[in-house]
Write a protein that binds this DNA or RNA. Structure first.
Length: 891
DNA sequence: CTAGGGTTAG
């Protein structure tokens, strides 16, 4: 037995035997010490033994020195036995030199070295890592031939390997054929499913494992947590969390990090905070998760703050810096983004494709396309994300030519994927290029991407935004799967085209499919209720808002104010307004408009005053609302003052809509001369709406002289708006100039313009009853007609005279009276009176402006039946009460 | 032999 001299164990010089060398070897903690032990072994001749050779090979590989491992193996080639072969294969595998490991295995086969059960796990690992399917087959075959098909470790390695190469079927097969399984077998299966995004299967395997009585360990939990997060299975996730709390794996870093990551996916930031605070130990992964998590939750500032906090303690790794770069990108913080990128370059981080993609994205979001391109050009490898990011970066920043050039380059060796198409379609949306969109659509169908959800959604959107509502709806109907974005897009489309009825139908279809609305759904749907004055649906949406906790979001509150004010409940609009803790200029505008619509001009002005006092800076839109409110309440002086204040005090140059409001204000107040002068003296070209306002006022006040002048101006403008043409034609009709009436009608017909036919509707017991002009085809027609005649008789006695100037057709007087009686609002009001409780308030909606005669008629009705009648027309609300109207006849 | 963190688009 030989003895050797050791200089490194403690300070003393000692003599010892074989076992002492072993102890020395195992106590080695760094490469330098390992070299010392090695040279002592060489000096003493110990290094010749197969046993110590193996130990040295493993040790060197532990310290990431595979070169030394290799040379030891080579020097000792004569003594090679299966133990040394296994060791070198394991060493190579451990250091990522997989092809070397495979080479050694091939040599073993050639030299006919007998392989044992220790040979296979490593080599299986290497095959998988190299994606060498050929070798996988050979090795798996060897395993079976040599009778290791039931070996626990080997089977576990096979499951893991197959999972890594995304051959979950083979993994499952090995798993199923095993005579007995341990926790590692289960874990490999679960993590295999989980890592490849087969989350349902991962959860299923996890449940199976639990049922089969295998106790879950830290590996199990950290494998199944991403699946819970990915599936948004909050309850399942909490169940696993409970398991963690109960078992002894609570302190495990991977488990805690997994929980943290999962709760970020659930957007349960408070839970994240709690878990983070409770963690005694944190590692770099922990920090990366929270930096990334905050960034994904939109808390970019927080994310950057955490990054700064972290760098005091840890050196950030590639994932840290890329996480914080995402926050920079979203914030548009180019300065900090550059700083971090410089840090990456200076410290020579080795950026992989993903990291480069993130940097490209950061620069593109910040608008620095030159820097983005530079990163792109210097990349070693590009994937689809790289190309897509660069191309969409160009498009987003309006470098359309560069984007198209890059697209052509990309197509040389890569095929576009669904994201590429989505990017291109969204570009069409921005450019309103429906022709290119159609071309793309063909390409998309050819490549089979038309069934992809995001592509379908993008198609839906591009057709909608390019004015092809029918294409959009058609696209919607053929989609086989729809998500919340699909529904939100179609609802927003209906809202945009004012197809409120279709829109609300879509909303209820969405609900029937069990999809919960989100903020975008709510913001798309509330305007539908406003347009239709759909009280009930509006209230229902408010219910969702409360249940889903969207109340605190300012745009939601703003939309609610608008909805309530337009569905006839000023009271509720005020309630919402008062409950909003944060108000922006839109909030105030909505409230001021609401007051305006109900003829509460003074309150509108008071709100405007309050808004200025609370420090909200008025914008040009709020001035429209304020002047509108003045106009509908006859506050001429205040309206003028606001108009002047806008320019002088707030330096806002009046736009055409402000001038239009002013014309409206003067006209409604009967200052026809002044209104005409105002139009003629304004610096902007007057549009049809101004002459239209003035003309309506002339009509209402019976000023035929001004009307004759104005109607010519209006006709000169040759507006495409059917409303103004019909107005002009009506004025000519009331002047008895039937030739001009016919000319206008012909021209309208030739241009294919049609004014929406008048209709009114009333909601009774959650059902909407719609009436068109002269409608006879509804239930209770007889009773309704009788009631109208009854009412007419009573009001005739009280002095009502039908004002026939509101009849448009060239017909006899008797017939004209009949036409007036057939106006849809009268039908709706009579129907409403018949079908609601006596004395209760009635609410009727009309799509057009209520005509002057109907306005008078309704005033009489409100007095005769002693009921409040709220009529919403295209312009505003009229509250009829005891013979008067809230608009004080300025309708 | 098994686990946790990063990218584009609607």
């Amino acid at each position: 037995m030989k003895t050797i001299k050791l200089g490194i164990v403690g300070q003393r010089t000692e003599y010892c035997f074989h076992s002492l060398v072993l102890r020395a070897l195992s106590s080695v903690t760094n490469q330098t010490d390992l070299h010392k032990v090695h040279s002592l072994m060489v000096v003493s001749g110990q290094h010749q033994s197969t046993f110590f050779c193996g130990k040295l090979i493993s040790k060197y590989s532990q310290f990431k020195d595979p070169v030394s491992s290799l040379s030891i193996f080579r020097i000792n080639s004569p003594t090679h036995n299966v133990y040394l072969w296994n060791t070198i294969i394991r060493a190579m595998t451990h250091n990522g030199l997989w092809s070397k490991a495979l080479d050694f295995y091939t040599q073993m086969r050639k030299l006919n070295v007998k392989r044992d059960n220790y040979t296979f796990p490593s080599i299986i690992n290497s095959c998988g890592s190299l994606l060498d399917l050929e070798m996988v087959k050979i090795v798996h075959n060897d395993v079976l031939e040599m009778g290791f098909g039931s070996d626990l470790y080997i089977c576990n390695a096979l499951i893991d390997m197959y999972a890594r190469i995304n051959e979950l079927g083979s993994a499952r097969e090995v798993f199923d054929k095993m005579p007995s399984r341990d926790v590692v077998s289960w874990n490999s299966l679960v993590s295999g499913y989980s890592a490849n995004g087969y989350w349902e299967e991962a959860l299923e395997a996890f449940r199976e494992g639990r049922l089969s009585g295998v106790a879950a360990d830290a590996f199990t939990v950290s494998s199944v947590l991403p699946a819970c997060g990915g599936l948004m299975e909050v309850e399942q996730g909490q169940m696993v969390h409970g398991l963690v709390e109960k078992s002894g794996i609570k302190g495990d870093m991977a488990v805690s990090n997994g929980l943290l990551s999962m709760y970020f996916k659930f957007e349960r930031l408070l839970d994240c905070q709690r878990i983070f605070d409770e963690m005694i130990f944190r590692d770099i992964v922990t920090w990366n998760i929270i930096i990334c998590g905050f960034s994904h939750s939109g808390l970019y500032q927080e994310s950057i703050k955490l990054f700064r906090e972290m760098v005091y303690e840890y050196e950030p790794d590639l994932l840290t810096v890329t996480s914080v770069l995402q926050a920079c990108g979203h914030m548009g913080d180019l300065r900090f983004g550059r700083y971090v990128h410089d840090y990456i370059l200076e410290n020579r981080y080795e950026c992989d494709t993903t990291a480069c993609n993130i940097i490209i994205n950061m620069y593109a979001r910040c608008g620095d396309l030159v820097a983005a391109r530079q990163v792109f050009d210097n990349m070693k490898r590009w994937d689809l994300v790289s190309w897509n990011s660069m191309i969409s970066g160009y498009f987003e920043n309006r470098f359309n030519k560069e984007a198209v050039d890059l697209l052509k380059m990309m197509r040389i060796d890569l095929q576009p994927d669904s994201v590429t198409f989505v990017t291109l379609l969204s570009m069409c949306t921005k450019l309103m290029d429906v022709d290119f969109a159609r071309e793309l659509h063909c390409d998309i169908i050819k490549r089979g991407y038309d069934s992809t959800l995001i592509v379908g959604n993008a198609l839906l959107d591009v057709y909608a935004k390019c004015g092809k509502m029918e294409h959009s709806v058609w696209q919607f109907e053929i989609m086989s799967t729809r998500d919340i974005v699909t529904w939100n897009t179609i609802i927003a489309t209906c809202s945009h085209y004012e197809e409120s009825y279709v829109g609300l139908k879509m909303l209820s279809r969405m609900r029937m499919e069990g999809i919960m609305p989100d903020v975008a759904t709510i913001l798309g749907s509330l305007p539908l209720c406003s347009l239709l004055a759909a009280k009930r649906q509006g209230k229902e949406l408010h219910g969702f808002i409360i249940r889903l906790n969207f109340e605190s979001q300012v745009p939601v509150g703003n939309a609610l104010i608008e909805m309530y004010s337009k569905t006839g409940s000023l009271k509720n609009a005020i309630l919402v307004f008062e409950h909003m803790r944060i108000k922006d200029v839109v909030t105030w505008t909505a409230m001021i408009s609401a007051y305006g619509m109900y003829g509460e001009g003074k309150k509108a002005l008071r709100s405007f005053q309050q808004m200025k006092e609370t420090g909200t800076i008025p914008d040009h839109i709020v001035f429209v609302a304020v002047i509108y409110a003045c106009s509908h309440s006859g506050l001429v002086q205040d309206g003028r003052a606001c108009f002047n204040q806008m320019r002088k005090k707030y330096n806002i140059e009046p736009r055409i809509e402000h001038y239009a409001c002013m014309v409206d204000l003067l006209s409604r107040s009967g200052l026809l001369v002044e209104a005409e002068d105002f139009i003629l003296s304004m610096p902007l070209q007057p549009d049809a709406s101004m002459w239209g306002s003035l003309l309506s006022a002339c009509r209402a006040s019976g000023d035929t002289g001004t009307a004759e002048r104005v109607v010519e101006r209006l006709v000169e403008l040759n507006s495409d708006d059917p409303g103004y043409n019909v107005l002009a034609s009506n004025v000519y009709a009331s002047l008895g100039k039937w030739d001009q009436v016919r000319t206008i009608r012909k021209s309208l017909k030739a241009r294919g313009l049609r004014k929406d036919p008048g209709c009114s509707w009333v909601e009774i017991c959650n059902r909407v009853f719609i009436f068109g002009t002269g409608d006879r085809s509804f239930q209770q027609f007889k009773q309704v007609n009788e009631l109208i005649e009854d009412l007419n008789r009573t009001m005739d006695k009280e002095g009502y005279v039908a004002d026939l100037k509101f009849v448009l057709h060239d017909v006899g007087e008797d017939e004209k009276i009949n036409l007036l009686y057939g106006h849809s609002e009268r039908l709706a009001i009579a129907f409403g009176l018949l079908n609601t409780k006596e004395g209760s308030p009635l609410q009727v909606m009309k799509n057009l402006r209520v005509c002057g005669d109907c306005h008078t008629w309704t005033k009489y009705v409100s007095k005769i039946v002693q009921r409040e009648i709220l009529v919403r027309d295209a312009n505003r609300f009229h509250l009829f009460k005891d013979g008067t109207c809230s608009c004080r006849d300025r309708w």
